[in-house]
Amino acid sequence: MAGMGPAPKPEGRKARRNKDTIPQTVLRWERAEAPELPDFRIEQGGQLVEFVWPERTREWWAMWIESPQADHFGSSDWQFLLDTALIHARLWRGDLSAASELRLRVAAFGATPADRARLRMVFAEADGADQGRGSSGAPSARERYGNLRSISGGQSAPGAST
């Protein structure tokens, strides 16, 4: 995928310690409420007709409003996502050429597990929900192998050939 290289390393793990040549800009954060999908008219056959959002796009929009990511969206994020909703509507009306642009846009918001990993997003509740066992619920490696000890000093395990 063009323009998507590996995520940068955390500051403490970088080999080079020189400062960034471009200073960081710190912005004041203001959470914004999600807008409703707007009513508007489009030109069709020389006349203005009411645009009807596909039901699938309405469901998609509701999903984004309820997503954990939405807690971190500002007004410009919602406006970008609103424009993305129009692309989503095009796709669900059969315009398959909209698919690649839609994929790129929703990736910026962490739509898939791979997108969230690249953006370094994690779900906080996941850590406590599985008691640190991972998503499968199986015992961790430490629980399975915690009592194993290495044999040193030239001793071999019982039954092992030397």
Rank of each mutant, 00 (worst) to 15 (best):
G74A: 11
L91Y: 15
W60N: 07
W92N: 07
P6K: 09
F73P: 00
I42F: 00
P158K: 14
D130A: 13
M4F: 06
V122L: 08
R149E: 12
D71I: 01
M121H: 10
P158H: 03
G153Q: 08
G3H: 04
P6N: 07
R116S: 04
E59D: 10
D71N: 10
R56D: 07
G154S: 11
A34Y: 08
Q131K: 14
R142V: 09
Q155H: 14
F73Q: 05
G110E: 05
P68D: 12
Q69R: 15
P35L: 04
P38Q: 03
P8E: 06
L82N: 00
R58G: 02
S76Q: 09
S75W: 01
S76G: 01
A15F: 09
I151H: 05
S75V: 06
T21S: 14
E66R: 14
R103W: 06
T57Q: 03
D71M: 06
W60E: 01
R133V: 04
I65M: 02
L82E: 05
K14W: 03
G134H: 09
H72F: 12
G154D: 03
V52W: 00
G74Y: 00
W92T: 15
R118E: 05
R144W: 02
D95H: 11
I42V: 15
A157Y: 14
F73H: 10
